[in-house]
């Protein structure tokens, strides 16, 4: 019972954080970002909240990557604390390593590189050479590829390159297939994550109807803020792409 109670609390904390990010993305004009600094993050103290930030990953600060407004210093501090508190083990799953890498990259972009607990400044993910291995994606069937990409949706950010993004770019049709599969299975979170990636890829079949597809995913699954976050991120990125 204790375990499931903790799990439910963690889920709730993640949902709250995701709601904050969605608000920031929706209200995200160039004037004022969300209340991330004044909302849940501000009060983060216990490990549960750090765990929630870790689950949400780099997307916690996504509004500040997509829009020019700088993040709240407190939110940034919590984000940094989370990155430092959960370094991936050498034998961690690739998605865990990449999720951490994504957070480190966001820190590099919005703040100074990692220091202290991580050893020399910026290590170990200071440069391209520090990227985790992404070759497992090339060997994955389209079903698994899409699932893993959806887990790593925080890496789907315009103008940023990495091994995972390159793997996605090589297989737009497979990711599109995975999107269809996820919608058919009513796995809205996976569908939303896959749809966010597809928004950034060239070579997605027109017949997919991606834009309406993402709206459908939001209609069916948007009550879950983690779904709404991915759909809104895709929408912002598509609009940004259209302006370029």
């Amino acid at each position: 019972m204790e375990q499931s109670g903790t799990s439910a609390l963690l889920q709730g904390a993640v949902q709250d954080l995701a709601s904050d990010v969605v608000s920031a993305l929706r209200g995200g004009d160039h004037v004022r970002m969300s209340g991330i600094g004044t909302g849940a993050v501000e009060e983060i103290e216990g490990s549960l909240d750090l765990a929630a930030v870790r689950v949400l990953g780099a997307d916690l600060l996504l509004p500040h990557v997509l829009f020019p407004a700088p993040p709240d210093p407190e939110a940034l501090a919590v984000f940094r604390k989370t990155v430092e508190a959960f370094p991936p083990r050498a034998d961690a799953a690739p998605t865990v390593k990449w999720s951490h890498w994504a957070m480190s990259r966001t820190l590099r972009r919005l703040d100074t590189p990692l220091t202290g607990a991580q050893g020399p400044p910026g290590a170990p993910f200071e440069d391209e050479g520090g990227e985790p291995d992404a070759s497992w994606l090339d060997e994955a069937a389209w079903q698994a590829l899409t699932h893993q990409l959806a887990v790593l949706a925080p890496l789907a950010v315009p103008g940023e390159d990495c091994g995972v993004a390159r793997a996605a770019r090589r297989r737009p049709v497979d990711v599109a297939r995975g999107f269809v599969r996820a919608v058919r299975r009513r796995d809205w979170q996976q569908a939303a994550g896959a749809g966010r990636w597809l928004t950034l890829l060239d070579g997605v079949p027109d017949a997919l109807g991606l834009e309406a597809g993402l709206d459908f995913v939001e209609l069916m699954g948007g009550n879950d803020p983690r779904v709404a976050l991915q759909v809104q991120a895709a929408r912002v990125m598509r609009t940004a792409g259209a302006l370029v």
């Binding site: 389209w142 079903q143 599109a176 297939r177 599969r181 058919r184 079949p205 017949a207």
Partner: peptide
């Protein structure tokens, strides 16, 4: 072409 792209998804499902 349409079927070559999407039929594998429907078969899987």
């Amino acid at each position: 072409d349409y079927l070559a792209t999407w039929l594998p998804v429907w078969i899987d499902d």
